[in-house]
């Protein structure tokens, strides 16, 4: 109690409370438009290929991982002087040791590269949601256009600050009649062959240039498909044609009818793996991003801070889990069920 009453501590507490109150009263943050698919950035097109903001984030994450790895191995030394090489060796050794505990020395050495590539890429892709400026700098377009193209119904007013335009926290909602008329006008504009531009936009919507890559299902399903198909290839390469026995009557119980059903279940679970692998990563990061949005929307000062810490942990955990499950699926694919080796 006595430490609480020191003038310095008291000043900090009162100052914090005052800042929270000021944040609630004057610094309201608009709630970003929450959309499931990656948002197309207006005007960013290469030929007929529309660039989405999650695509931009994927490229950035790729570049970061490639650049870091390249810098780390540029001047390889037996006793490394560069800090980056030291860090990379340390990380490599930790995870190689961990994989050895799970799958044995030979398999750990074979797939630690895949494991670390996935881990590093997903780590940077996940953590991108925490960087300021991402999700908040982008193209501002009229709410009517956004409704016609993406079905967004809530927009914001805008304000000019010097050369920049920013959204204010005043929400604008489209009524049912307005929605119907927008659809009509957009169809008319399309029939006439020009783009739809409303004369007096009711509100505006922001499409960010960059949005964390793993908040787009396309990336996570793509990665999960890659991993599962790759694990089938690994199985065929290690076991040859005997790998098919994993799905067709594996030798597990010795009772043929039971084994047939087990094989069928194993086959179905390959597809369930794609769903659970992709949606786990996507769900966690997408939910985390929405959580950060909502917390900043409620009180823009102090309140989001613990959630940033939480998301830092979740981002690492999900990247780690994805990479670990990849390793385990590879490892499982090399078990023989032909009934001549283990039983």
């Amino acid at each position: 109690m006595s430490t609480l009453l020191k003038p310095k501590t008291l000043a900090i507490i009162i100052g914090t409370i005052a800042l929270v109150v000021i944040a609630i009263l004057f610094f309201r943050v608009p709630l970003p438009t929450i959309l499931l698919p990656g948002e197309a950035i207006p005007g960013w097109k290469i030929g007929s290929f529309q660039i989405t903001n999650t695509f931009v984030a994927t490229i950035i994450a790729d570049i970061i991982v490639l650049a870091l790895s390249f810098l780390a191995v540029r001047k390889m030394q037996e006793v490394p002087e560069s800090k980056l090489q030291n860090i990379f060796e340390w990380v490599y050794e930790i995870f190689e040791g961990m994989l050895m505990d799970i799958g044995g020395k030979e398999k750990a050495k074979a797939w630690v590269g895949v494991f670390l590539t996935l881990l590093l890429f997903l780590l940077f892709a996940n953590w991108m949601e925490l960087v300021p400026g991402i999700d908040s700098i982008g193209v501002i377009e009229p709410l009517e256009v956004a409704y016609a193209e993406k079905g967004v119904t809530v927009g914001y007013n805008i304000k000019h600050i010097g050369p920049f335009i920013t959204l204010t926290s005043e929400q604008v909602k489209l009524t049912d009649e307005e929605r119907a008329s927008i659809v009509e006008e957009a169809e008319k504009a399309e029939a006439a062959g020009h783009e739809y531009h409303p004369e007096n936009p009711k509100g505006y919507v922001l499409t960010p240039y960059v949005r964390a890559a793993t908040t787009d299902l396309n990336l996570t399903i793509g990665l999960a498909l890659l991993v599962i198909i790759w694990s089938q290839i690994v199985g065929f390469r290690r076991l040859g044609f005997k790998y098919i026995r994993r799905f067709a009557m594996p030798h597990i119980t010795g009772m043929k009818p039971v084994d047939i059903i087990v094989g069928l279940l194993e086959f179905i679970s390959e597809f369930a793996k794609i769903i659970s692998l992709s949606f786990r990563l996507f769900g966690n990061i997408f939910a985390g991003q929405v959580l950060l949005f909502v917390m900043a929307f409620l009180i823009s000062f102090l309140l989001p801070l613990p959630f940033f810490g939480l998301e830092l942990f979740v981002g690492f955990m999900q990247a780690f889990v994805f990479a670990l499950l990849t390793f385990i699926y590879f490892e499982q694919a090399t078990h023989s069920y032909a009934g001549d080796e283990h039983h």
């Binding site: 949606f279 939910a287 670990l324």
Partner: peptide
Amino acid sequence: TNMILGIVFAESIAIYALVVAL
């Protein structure tokens, strides 16, 4: 390590619910 794996598999049930909700 095994605990994390177990958590992941238990969590995937919640992920299916999340998919339905989304």
